[in-house]
Write a protein that binds this DNA or RNA. Structure first.
Lengths: 284, 284
DNA sequence: GTCTATACCCAGATAGAC
DNA sequence: GTCTATCTGGGTATAGAC
């Protein structure tokens, strides 16, 4: 019967309208300003109607988070095809920072707001490249040998069945594994546990984005420079360790970062810019 | 006349009680849960009374921030006396992370909440080691040569007249300058702009703390290990770059980090622990 | 200085008419 | 399915009595 299906379509359509409105509010005024009333107002429905589609404001927030992770994943996917693992990883790092800078409220929501939001889309992906899932917490420091086990399901693009957040992180982890397998890590970090290495790099990038969103005096140098320096520090400035006189940048890779991280189009298809700095009280 | 002074003392005392109560609420339930009503309730005064001491909730928040920065500075001061600049910088880094982990809500408030809070206590300190104050934003990348200018007022401990936040950051920057002057930076980072280097290191540490507070799956390895790896990456694992077989840690320095960052006493005199993870709705 | 009382705002969520 | 109306509870801030 087509009738039930049409009703279903309509229901889905309204659900999308709700999420659209919610996303717009979050992008404009930040997550704290998101309220059921405002959403209802924006879509010209009564507040009560929202509860026919979402059980609570929290559920809407969670849906927005998933969208955010998917959005981040989308900017990663094309970069996953870069052949050279080091270049790929650098491109991913720059894209990660660019995403945070271009979608500050989205980034805040999925990575800086609430542990339950951040955790929802991350099924314990980090630190367990191909280890068992379990809470690898206890003895993770002694797991350097387990990373070259089987290769089935290991390819980045094939992980789309995971949730987006996990998939995005796997793209990074896979690149790291390749890099390690190729023995291309700079001498000073080659001996470390890859999982720790990955988390430390992630922290570095997250720190750059987070400080940029919250700390007015950061960075004093252009953002791309700081990003380039961080990537070089972890991935190793290609070979020549002794070049001196270069003040801020280290290589062509960093120079390119200037373009890619500052420009607005890291990946195709994001129609919605968010205001760069959040004002104290965004509302009128 | 002693009468006016006594009244003044009483007024100051109540002000302190207000801040005490506010601090306790923030530590227990997070900044978002701080309200005038709750403070008034805690000190058994009427809400209206609070407005005789603070113009708004925001003013209370700002006062709490200053306290937070001062608290952070206190944990830095004793470490500023470590002679070796590399060791000093590592100790500072570990203390920084330890502070964030031990006082999550305080750290959130001063570094992750609102740009105006974070900016209030930071008079443009970063990136301008001894340069003029002005917004060194534009050409900061070309300033590698200006760091050994004059030494008057350059000593870390002498900067107590600055606001606490700035002073704390200057302690780190000074250590970096010394390290650079001594030519002790690892080869791969020796050629960089010190200001950029400092900001990137700061971002790395901030990222570790921030992810630890917000991302449930971070880190999978013990925190101290990740901190140690980050410090080694930026400060250089002392000399031996080729040691292999060490899985997570790299040196005695990292091993020590395990103790200092995990233990509860980085600095003397903080009486108030905060719950480690923030629950979604902390209130009953 | 301190209180009570209150004005005025906002929120999330639900009951029950249509 | 959608609405109106409402419950319940929170918040900032102020007026005016004491």
């Amino acid at each position: 019967m087509g009738i039930a299906e049409r009703k279903n379509r309509q229901k889905q359509a309204l659900r999308e309208r709700i999420l659209d409105a919610a996303r717009r509010i979050v992008m404009r005024e930040g997550f704290a300003a998101l309220s059921m009333r405002k959403i209802a107002d924006a879509i010209e429905y009564s507040p009560a109607t929202l509860y026919l589609h979402f059980a609570s404001r929290d559920e809407i927030a969670r849906a927005l988070c998933e969208e955010g992770y998917a959005q981040l994943l989308e900017t990663f996917v094309p970069l996953a095809r870069i052949a050279d693992p080091a270049e790929r990883l650098k491109a991913l790092g720059r894209a990660y920072v660019a995403f945070g800078v271009e979608h500050p409220q989205t980034y805040r929501l999925i990575f800086m707001e609430d542990p339950s939001y951040t955790g929802a889309a991350l099924g314990g992906a980090v630190g367990a490249s191909r280890k068992e899932k379990g809470n690898g917490h206890a003895a993770a420091a002694a797991g350097a040998g387990s990373s070259e086990a089987g290769d089935e399901m290991g390819n980045a693009a094939a992980q789309a069945d995971d949730d987006p957040g996990t998939a995005a992180l796997h793209i990074m982890i896979d690149a790291l594994d390749e890099l390690r397998a190729a023995g291309r890590l700079s001498a000073s970090v080659a001996s470390m546990d890859p999982a720790v290495w990955a988390e430390a790099l992630w922290a570095g990038l997250h720190g750059i984005v987070a400080l940029n969103l919250t700390c007015p005096v950061f960075p004093s140098a252009p953002l791309d420079i700081v990003v380039g320096v961080t990537l070089d520090a972890w991935l190793g400035a290609p070979q020549a360790a002794q070049r001196q006189g270069a003040t801020g940048a280290s290589s062509a890779a960093t120079a390119r970062a200037g373009k890619s991280a500052a420009g607005q189009s890291t990946a195709p298809g994001d129609p919605t810019p968010e205001p760069t700095r959040r004002r104290k009280n965004a509302g009128p």
